[in-house]
Design a protein around this nucleic acid. Structure first.
Lengths: 169, 169
DNA sequence: CCGATATCGTATGGATCTCATAATATATGA
DNA sequence: TCATATATTATGAGATCCATACGATATCGG
């Protein structure tokens, strides 16, 4: 350890680096674990609603990013367009979404989520929602801002990494 | 706004609360967005390796939480035991895992990941990994600790919310 | 305007996957 | 020992995925 070294100053620096690497690794680990856990939560919520994982992801995207075309959705969800037809059929049949022809381009279709049913989803997330409120309550405004910015940057990093993998064909 | 009110002090307090609610909501939003993005990244990585999303999740769980039985894995991944047989068949055929009978209980099976192949996975995450290193480099030690703790707590919250939903049958 | 071509969503069908149930092998307890 | 419980896997019916094809519409060059 440091105590056997001749040069305490340099050891300190190295310890700092080591510690930093440890912290960074810990964050990446934690992030991964969190990601898995949130997927499992989605799986549970989706299961309650009788919606398959992939379908639920799509419904979430529609809810979050407004009305959009099936092909845009397929791109966003990383699925085949023909698969999306099946997904939308199920979601439409179960009353989660509607399909409307785009007046501007009559080949196109706009997929829209039915807001009325969002309360059902919201209700199932109530537990997690409350827990997150509690968790956030323990931080001051500056810390919350730090956290939000970190999360956004991590998202951007994820998007870039994903796109890089997708493009290099 | 505040300027028209008779009681600046109380307005300040209310603004603080409003701001806090906004920040908390922003964090929850960001977290959700991040979760989606990481799922898409996994989807890309899995796609590159010719492994389906669900299968890849299972492989990840095996890698992360050591050797385990198919039923334990099914529970963790939220899947039917019979489905897990198919998942493990595919992963084994593709050389990602091995199945060994448990000497202690010869009904049981231990599923073990083949570490040699982990470099393939790791390599595909290299981009995201480097981006996260860059991101973390912008924070000091105390901030990194704050972030890690937040992520861990959020994971715990997620696990609790998931278990609550799973149990209330 | 017209014809060629591109794009959008979806139908089709074969391969694959899921999962309830049954079957097999082993363990456990009375 | 025998009944019951447990871990995993086989079976098969139904659902899903997706490469491809198709019909409808849009766009563009001439």
């Amino acid at each position: 350890m440091s105590s056997v070294s001749q040069d305490g100053k340099q050891d300190e620096k190295q310890d700092g680096k080591r510690q930093r690497r440890r912290s960074t690794t810990a964050i990446k680990e934690s992030l991964r674990e969190l990601s898995i856990q949130l997927s499992l939560l989605n799986h549970q919520v989706g299961g309650r609603l009788g919606v398959k994982d992939a379908d639920f992801d799509c419904l979430d995207l529609i809810n979050r990013h407004g009305p959009m075309s099936p092909s845009a959705l397929a791109r966003r969800a990383g699925q085949h367009p023909a698969t999306m037809t099946g997904v939308l059929d199920r979601l439409e049949r179960a009353g989660w979404i509607t399909r409307e022809r785009d007046p501007g381009d009559r080949r196109a279709v706009q997929v829209r989520a039915l807001k009325e049913r969002n309360t059902e989803i919201f209700h199932l997330y109530a537990g997690m929602n409350a827990a997150m409120d509690d968790l956030c309550a323990g931080y001051d405004e500056a810390q919350l801002e730090l956290l939000a910015e970190f999360l956004d940057r991590a998202t951007t990093a994820g998007r870039r990494a994903t796109d890089d993998l997708a493009e290099q064909d």
